[in-house]
């Protein structure tokens, strides 16, 4: 990832530091001077030592459009997660167990590692689909009730919904 203005390493360290601090503060649940100082010191040491270790962490684009897409993404995500659970409950509760499993192949336009990871995770938590294998731009997805086999159509049904948000967030 090429970043404008700030150099790559400084940017990575800053994002890592901010993430660690956020986790530390959430874990403590209160803002007090001694907690802040200890957290800041430890976070700084870890961030400096491991700034390149989690580079996929920093692939998020810090632009207003990406933040808006992020909100849209989570809204869509929770809607889909809820739908998938209702569908699954319906399948599990019906006596005949109406499944039609298949492993289909789909394609993604996303290029970054984090974008692809988020896509795979999203697919796993949405109605009836589970990512089994990833190879470059190809994803192999297990489908409890297959609706389409052709790559284009399966991609349109499984991938496109999330991809439009993730493309803005990670590229």
């Amino acid at each position: 990832m090429i970043s404008k203005g700030i150099s790559g390493k400084g940017r990575n360290t800053a994002i890592m530091f901010a993430t660690l601090m956020l986790f530390w503060l959430m874990l403590n649940g209160k803002l007090e001077a001694d907690i802040l100082i200890v957290g800041a010191l430890v976070a700084l040491v870890i961030a400096v030592l491991y700034r390149d270790g989690l580079s996929f962490f920093t692939e998020f684009r810090f632009t207003p459009a990406a933040f808006i897409a992020g909100f849209g993404y989570y809204g869509y995500f929770f809607k889909e997660l809820f739908k998938s659970n209702i569908k699954l409950a319906a399948i599990v509760l019906s006596p005949s167990l109406p499944v039609k499993p298949a492993i289909v192949k789909v394609r993604t336009k996303l290029k970054t590692r984090m974008g692809r990871l988020m896509l795979a995770n999203s697919i796993t938590l949405t109605p009836g689909t589970l990512t089994v294998e990833m190879e470059g731009e190809w994803l192999y997805v297990h489908w409890v009730r297959m609706e389409a086999d052709a790559i284009e159509e399966a991609t349109a049904r499984i991938v496109s919904g999330f991809e439009s948000y993730l493309e803005v967030m990670y590229g």
């Binding site: 659970n85 699954l88 599990v92 167990l97 499944v99 499993p101 938590l125 689909t129 297990h142 409890v144």
Partner: peptide, 21 residues
């Protein structure tokens, strides 16, 4: 779902989605 589903992939699906939500 874990008990009723016919194979391991379907069981994983049942397990992962419902435990998350």
């Amino acid at each position: 779902g874990l008990v009723r589903m016919p194979d391991i992939y379907n069981r994983i699906q049942a397990g992962a989605k419902t435990t998350t939500l």
